[in-house]
Amino acid sequence: MIKLAIYGKGGIGKSTISSNISAELTRRGMKVMQIGCDPKADSTSLLCGKRIPTVLDLTREKGSRLTLDDAVYESPSGVVCVEAGGPVPGVGCAGRGIINALETLKKLGAYDVYKPDVVIYDVLGDVVCGGFSMPMRKGYADKVFVVTSGEKMSKYAAANICMAVENFRDRGYASLGGIILNRRGVRDEDEQAKELADDFHTSIIGTLDRSEEIQLADEQQKTVSEAFPECKAAKQLSLIADGVLASFK
């Protein structure tokens, strides 16, 4: 089983890239489970065409009667989807929510029951607290991929995430799988991403250009390969999926 986490600054395209990788790997015959680790709970809406109930909401509603059938949804393309969920903005503790949701999934035996070939944790923004490091802990993701553009704040968040991965190296946590460059048309963007990758002794495993098809596919609540299978973005996302798999070899 390959387990990976995708991190990056808010709005950088983690969910879009995660969903497209999930759909692509499913299309190649792999069983993929995508777990959204964001209180907004919209990681898998692109795959499912709608929002699905979250583990935390269901736990609150059903308590110990919660089953996997309640929390796990299969998308039309065959991706096994879960949303951790979390509190509404401004209250509670989102990090603790991620811990609770992931522990609940483990306790319910989600990985044994669905036996996915690939598990993708799509994680909110930066590693701001202990809860958001949960997906990179032992027993969860084996590799972390960081999505960034050449924009200053995106690189800053990416560097923080890479640093967290480095700090946790002695604990047997996930290692850095690589950088995914989501181009935003910034000057010297490729060089800046390469510099970041070099700083953390990793590489750029894939790139994605800004494209209208991605936005149109998002609006249609479809993955790019579903909506525009022949476009350049679909090919780039397929190459990113290749890069992810290659990093595990």
Binding site: R96, I99, G130, S133, M134, R137, F168, R171
Partner: peptide, 14 residues
């Protein structure tokens, strides 16, 4: 430590 997500498994290893 439950609220802050302390990883006791990793700390025990250390």
């Amino acid at each position: 430590p439950m609220m802050t997500g302390t990883d006791f498994d990793a700390i025990a290893e250390e």
